[in-house]
Design a protein around this nucleic acid. Sequence first.
DNA 1: ATAGGGTTAG
Length: 717
Amino acid sequence: MSFAKSVGLSFFHSLLKSQLETKTVNSPLLVFRQLLQFNLKPSDLTFSLVIKASASYSLKQRLEANQIHTHLLKSGIIHSVYITTALLSLYVNLGCIKNASFLLEDMPERDVVAWNALISGYSKNGYDLYAFYLFMEMLREGFSPQTTTLVGLFPSIGRLELVSQGKSIHGIGVKAGLDRDSKVKNALTSMYAKCRDLAAAEILFEEMVEKSVVAWNTMIGAYGQNGLFDEAMVLFKKMRENTLEANSVTVMSLLSANADHETIHCFAIKTGIVIDASVITSLVCVYARSGDNESSGLLHNSLPEENLVSLTAIISSYAERGNVDMVVECFARSQQLDMELDAVAMVSILHGVKNPAYTDIGVAFHGYGIKTGLCIHSLVANGLISMYSKFNDIEAVFSLFSEMQEKPLISWNSIISGCVRAGRADDAVELFCRMKMFGHHPDAITIASLLSGCSQLGYLQFGKKLHGFVLRNNLEVEDFIGTALIDMYIKCGSIDVAERVFKSIKEPCLATWNTTITGYGVCGFQNKALAHYAELRKRGLKPDRITFLGVLAACIHSGAVDEGRRYFQIMTEEFGMAPSLQHCACMVALLSRAGLFKEALLFISNMDFDPDSAVWGALLSACCTHQEVKLGEYIAKKLYLLDHRNGGLYVLMSNLYASKGMWDDVARVRQMMKDTGGDGCSGVSLLEVTSFKEMDDNSYLWEVDHGAQSCQQTFSD
DNA sequence: ATAGGGTTAG
């Protein structure tokens, strides 16, 4: 390239320009380095081109962005508003929000474009509140918002808790005369829909004199997001009566509005929309989610070019069911095709590794993430945190968290729920306090995870505080939070409060019903549990496997053998569900507790599975109550072979021998337990003491909030 | 501007 020297900078500028136009960009930084080797001094145009090219090169190496930044600082050109703004946008696109915000802070002279870029950057990267605060700061510094500002900001206000802020900004928009812009109107409609204020969304939509396809799509999506699927369909028909042609986004919105996917698929074929790769991709997602792997696979193969989103949908359908082999196969496929995985794909892969038996595969994916640089993404780090928490590897969880450069709310949620899952709810509560010190405001997921931690600890006082927080902050007590609240109150012994929460939910989802049924079942309220099952059926809901686990648990705890048999039959015959190992363990527990050992053993021999320690454990425990030493010894051998370190085995055997006065055997079993290192303390019952009085005789009286049956007990010492 | 893949409970 000796001629380059004579042509100077302009040669490199044309090189970058042509790369930009033909989109055949190699590393723009490479061109930049060559230019420096020729002792040329880059100008603002050079930087502007390098940054633009970098943006379309979708450069994943944040390091390269930093290098451009460094050169800019050295050359002094950083003071140009345009260049700094371009660099800021580049950082935003890379998800380096911190760097972008530092740039804005240091700009001696800011312009609206820079504010807009950072506001929408915060918004797109999950820093919703930051977007809002930055917007306020912008107003305080005397800048007037533009349409771009509002359009970038509104998506981050689309949350129930921020509905009043959204209204204020709507007002600001009206004052600035921006609300007549159709982009602003559509963004507003979508915001109100996400805040669950459908009435406001409808008014905005009706107001529009000339409704574009985008406007119709927005409103169809609005109904879909709020569960009004029929309304979404009706609006779609109206749209077609108004002779507006549906486009690919319409079809995708209908698909996510739970419309019958085969109908929509037909419509897409008839109108020709189906050739759109995004539509095929959405169809792949829908079929994959419904578990129809064959259709999703066929559609995926019909794509003109396999794309990552579609493959990710397929991966996640396998991942959800914990099918590691298929996840690995899909991953291999992506590598054969030279596909570059992104953070979301990586997260769904990690999601598939749930079983600690596959720790080595999980660690291998972690290694892949480090090599490709994907681990820097907070999404991937969150995925890793969840994965290691399933392996109970709390050290890995904490070290991943502390290494994260940016910690948005979702990372705090990941580590909090990770701690709870790994049985470290006390750490979760501590992290929650730290999270608040860092200025984060908990959302529904934070609260739901913490509530489940409270259930684990029996920490009723804190659970009540969280309940108060939910009520004060208008968080919706449905699905997630409602279920978690009911679970917490039941496990902390406040059955009556749990019942009140359940009654306050207008349309409980299946998970809420399941939690309630299970809760009543294990607390010994068999009639209430079964009544709730009947009510669920009356409302036309279809029970699932978990429902029947709850129903069976209720039968076990009340000794209702015939009822249990009947529900097992309903499950297998009326609903055609294949019983899982857990269901079988329930049946074995039910039969053996009633002393029906022959029937229980027959049941085990007819099972489709090899019995696991839960099945044998249930049987052995029943042997204790019925003093069945011979059968007990037979089962103990089975259990010993499955897991000889299981402390429960020795405790049960010791109790069994003791019930018959066989003290030599008791001593022998206890010695065996010591030899294997077991301590026999595998379970702890725990309730929170709500009041504590010192009595005259120096003993203490403590009371436990146990709902209807408040219990009192005294103890000395 | 509207839409498609991921994270939460049972």
